[in-house]
Design a protein around this nucleic acid. Structure first.
Lengths: 224, 224
DNA sequence: GCTTAGATTTAGCCAAGGCTAAATCTCCGG
DNA sequence: CCGGAGATTTAGCCTTGGCTAAATCTAAGC
C-alpha cells in the first residue's frame, strides 16, 4: 500500500487497535467501551471516533456503535502485526521477560517502518504467533483466527496445552508464569471448585488456579 | 536517573539534540540556527526555546543565544546514545544500509526504553562508535570527544583512515559509499585542485572527490 | 552616534487530543 | 406509551507545537 500505517498519528493507531480488540472480545463496540479501553472520557472518545469516521477508518451513525471499515481493519491488523512481531523480537533476541514485552512493544510499534518490520519478520523466520500465543497477522492483513476455550471453561479430566495467555495485565502474566502457565505448557484439570477456581497439573506439579487467572488462559484441547 | 529522557516529548527531545549538534558544529546557537535545523519558523523556535528554558533544559536571555544547561546536555547525550546504538543495531543485526539507518533511528530513538537500550548495548558489546564513526555517549552521559580533520583539509601525500562520515544527508552517504569512503577505509591524497576537489587513492583505485563530499568525511591521520 | 538590516519576540491564529459540564438521545420497565 | 437511567453528543476550555504578520531589539557601518 502507498500509505503505511505509520502515517497515521499515534493516537489514531491506538484507537484503531483498541476498537479492533473490543470487537474481538465483547463484540459490540460502544463509545463507552472505547472510552474505557483507551482510558479517556466519553467525550474524547466521541471526538476521536468522529475523526476516524471522517478519515474513512470507521463507520459510525450518531448514538450507534462503531465499526471498522475495511481500511480501518487493515490498518488495525498492520498495527497488531507490528506489535506482535516486536513482542517476539524483544523476547527472543533481547531476552526481555514475558510480562515486560507488551508494554515495550506498545511504545515501539508506532515507529516501526515497513523496512524494519520486514527485516525483523525475516530474522524471526516469518513467525505466526507471538510469545503470548497470539496469532500474528500476515503482511497482507489476514489473521489466522483460532478460537480456543478459556481454562475456566474446562472440566476435571480435560487435558490440553496452553495456546495463549492474555497479554493485557503484566501482574497476571507474572503469576501465570510462576504457575508455569505459559504458551506451550501441558495441563490437566484435576478438580473444579464451586467459585470457579481450579486444581490442575502443570509441569508435573499440582497447582491451584484462581478464577481470574483461569479466565486469562486459553487452551488448545488434546484428545488424549 | 529517576526521570528517563523518554518522559520528554518527542519535539523536546528533537530540539535538545538539534541544539547540541549546532553547538558542536558552528558553536554559537542562535534562534535562527535552531529554526533552520528543526525546519521550523523563527517564531516557533523562540516559542519552544522558552519552554525548554522553563523546564531548566536550556539557558536563554531574550535576544541572546541559547545554551544547554547541565540537565539539557545530559538529556541530549542520552538521546544521541539512543540514536547511535539504534543505528549500529539496525546495521549489524538487521542489515540495513548505511544511508537508511539515520532516518530509521530518528523515528525509533524516542521510544527506546532504558531496559531495551541496555539489552541492545549489551548485545552489541557496549560499542563506542556507530556505523558512521560517530562516538556513542556512555550511559553516564560522557562523550569521547575526538576531533578529526575533514578530508578537505588534507594535502597531497597525506594518508589516513576514514574515521567518520557525516550522517545527515543520505544522498551524500550513498555517493561516499560508492567511492569506498566508509569508516575504516584507508585513503591517500594524490592531488588537490584549486576548487577544493581532491584526487585520492581509496580501495586501490584512484578516485575523484568533489569539495562537498570532501567536507563530509573526517580522517584519522596516520603517520606512515 | 545614527540608521537600518536582520534577528528576535509578540500577537493572534490553527489542528490534534485531551478535559468537564450540560444537553440530548435511546431504550427498558412499568 | 411514558418516564427516567444511562449512553452519547455538544459546548467550551486546555496544552502542545506549529504558522504568519507585525513589533521590537541588536549591531554593523557610516
Amino acid at each position: 500500500m502507498v500509505s503505511p500505517v505509520t502515517a497515521l498519528s499515534q493516537a489514531i493507531q491506538d484507537y484503531l487497535k483498541g476498537i479492533y480488540k473490543i470487537r474481538q472480545g465483547q463484540g459490540s463496540v460502544t463509545l463507552t467501551a472505547v472510552a474505557q479501553r483507551m482510558g479517556v472520557s466519553a467525550a474524547s472518545a466521541t471526538n476521536m471516533v468522529k475523526r476516524l469516521a471522517r478519515l474513512g477508518l470507521v463507520a459510525h451513525a450518531p448514538y450507534r456503535t462503531v465499526e471498522l471499515t475495511a481500511a480501518g481493519e487493515k490498518a488495525a491488523l498492520e498495527i497488531i502485526r507490528h506489535h506482535r512481531l516486536l513482542e517476539l523480537f524483544l523476547r527472543q533476541h533481547l531476552g526481555l521477560d514475558l510480562h515486560q514485552i507488551h508494554r515495550e512493544a506498545e511504545e515501539m510499534e508506532h515507529s516501526l517502518s515497513e523496512a524494519v518490520e520486514a527485516r525483523i519478520a525475516a530474522l524471526l523466520g516469518d513467525p505466526v504467533a507471538d510469545p503470548h500465543g497470539d496469532p500474528i497477522p500476515s503482511r497482507g492483513g489476514t489473521l489466522p483466527q483460532q478460537v480456543h476455550p478459556r481454562l475456566e471453561e474446562l472440566r476435571p479430566g480435560d487435558r490440553g496445552e496452553v495456546a495463549r495467555v492474555s497479554d493485557e495485565d503484566p501482574r497476571l502474566l507474572r503469576r501465570l508464569t510462576a504457575l508455569g502457565l505459559v504458551p506451550g505448557a501441558r495441563v490437566r484439570i484435576l478438580q473444579r471448585h464451586r467459585n470457579g477456581a481450579l486444581a490442575l497439573l502443570s509441569g508435573g506439579r499440582r497447582r491451584h488456579v484462581s478464577p481470574v487467572l483461569a479466565r486469562a488462559v486459553f487452551i488448545a484441547r488434546r484428545s488424549a
